[in-house]
Nucleic acid binder design. Structure first.
Lengths: 252, 252
DNA sequence: GATAAGGGTTTACGTAACGTCAAGGTCAAT
DNA sequence: ATTGACCTTGACGTTACGTAAACCCTTATC
């Protein structure tokens, strides 16, 4: 049984263009080309096309299909396993996206149409701007421009969920500071837990954590009255206590 | 605060090219262009970009984002709901694909590496070829070329699972025929069940079921010795019994 | 004042997997 | 000889940019 392009197209369900394309990229060549330049496919090509379509259904790229089909010693199992992992990642991403879309719809339905998101984005911008105004110069000197830019970029790229978690963690730290301070000992388990939470919090916005940076920041907290004012709102002397706790944590 | 392309690129995490592209397609125009042709963005554009990136994360197309962002009376909720439906479909498809990939891997691991699929495809082709050789002419005369081609296409497009179910159903019919024949009555519940199963089986390969086609096929079974030989393997006179059962079933 | 470095600009090709013309050759039947 | 169906090869359009290439502007340095 021999088929021209459109004959094969009809029985296989793909378009003629697709068959010509597959010929062009070397995925499926016709058995022969007749004297007038027509592509002629035979039974073997029909079978091959079936296999190609099978893998195509699985969203394997034509490039990969080419290897799977034409290399007899190709490890199909490994290829499929890799492909499976890709699909899994894709689905995980899809799930996250769907959750966000759901939440966004809910927030619109909840009567604050777009406002919350606006606020959220605004918060992030404000936070970055404030950071930049207040500590930009010091930070840039201390850690270099790239680090600061990276930090800002990370903040901007944060999802609302991350942002919420970060602010929650910020509040937790505030409470922990009060508790830990009562122990009077910057080496107490409470103080060390405080320092650890502070590290976690830091890592939300800091691209890469190092002990040195952490220690540097702690010093800056004490040196800069704006930080001191903030942490001393929890308890007087809280900023120094936090610095000591961080130093102890680092040297653990 | 004013930004040139690369400044904005850095703080937003996108590339300069992306910003120029967004300008070109009218998604995000700079606040102004200075005397040397440089794009200058302001705070408003930063905020807009944030929103754009938010929707981009959700895999909304730039075309759709344009409407969401720039049309104040646009129904964002509806847009997101539609988008959500799309995502749902996408995930459903992904799930199906993943299941098939898993099965294919399992079949490779099961020790019949690729052979089964090969065989499967081979079977399908053989089935179609045999059908074509044996009954092609009759069928084409009876139902028209288009119907036959459609039937073949459907067969070819069948998944292995469908194929397996079809062959299993074929065996079931064979057994049912034996049982039903014992009742001696082509109107007995067993006979009617047989006819129904035969209809199910038919529908695997037949694009659209009609009573007339079913009856026509039943007649062909009796008239054609190759069919008769097949069904009479179950019991002598089985083919005729099947035809009668089908006719009774149709006229129920 | 020349030059180099480091911005900015536009134009244009490449990506994946085809759909969709457009212009023109082939084949069978009338 | 003509018609109509089927074949061929370009070539552009699709999405959201990446990646040059070729060129302009500004600033710092020698």
């Amino acid at each position: 049984m021999e088929y021209t392009v459109n004959k094969l197209a009809k029985i296989s369900g793909v378009s003629g263009r697709t068959l010509r394309y597959y010929d062009k990229i070397g995925l499926l060549k016709p058995a022969r080309v007749n004297s007038s330049g027509y592509r002629i496919y035979g039974q073997k090509e029909v079978d091959l096309l079936q296999q190609i379509l099978f893998y195509r259904e699985l969203e394997v790229s034509l490039e990969d299909i080419k290897e799977i089909i034409h290399q007899p010693d190709f490890d199909r199992k490994l290829a499929l396993k890799n492909h499976y992992e890709e699909l899994k990642d894709k689905r995980a991403r899809l799930d996250k996206i769907m959750a966000t879309v759901e939440k966004t719809i809910a927030s619109i339905e909840g009567g604050n149409p777009m406002q919350d998101k606006d606020k959220f984005e605004g918060f992030k911008e404000k936070l970055i701007n404030e950071n930049e105004k207040k500590y930009g110069k010091e930070n840039r000197e201390k850690y270099g421009d790239d680090t600061v830019e990276a930090s800002n970029a990370k903040l901007r790229g944060m999802s609302q969920e991350d942002y919420d978690n970060m602010t929650k963690l910020g509040e937790e730290i505030f409470e922990l500071l009060k508790e830990a301070y009562l122990t009077g000992d910057p080496n107490s388990p409470e103080a060390l837990k405080l320092a650890e939470k502070h590290k976690e919090w830091l890592m939300y916005s800091w691209p890469s954590y190092t002990k040195e940076a952490h220690a540097g920041l702690a010093e800056m907290y004490v040196a800069d009255e704006r930080f001191t004012a903030y942490y001393d709102k929890a308890v007087k002397g809280g900023t120094k206590f936090l610095r000591d706790a961080i130093n102890n944590y680092i040297n653990m």
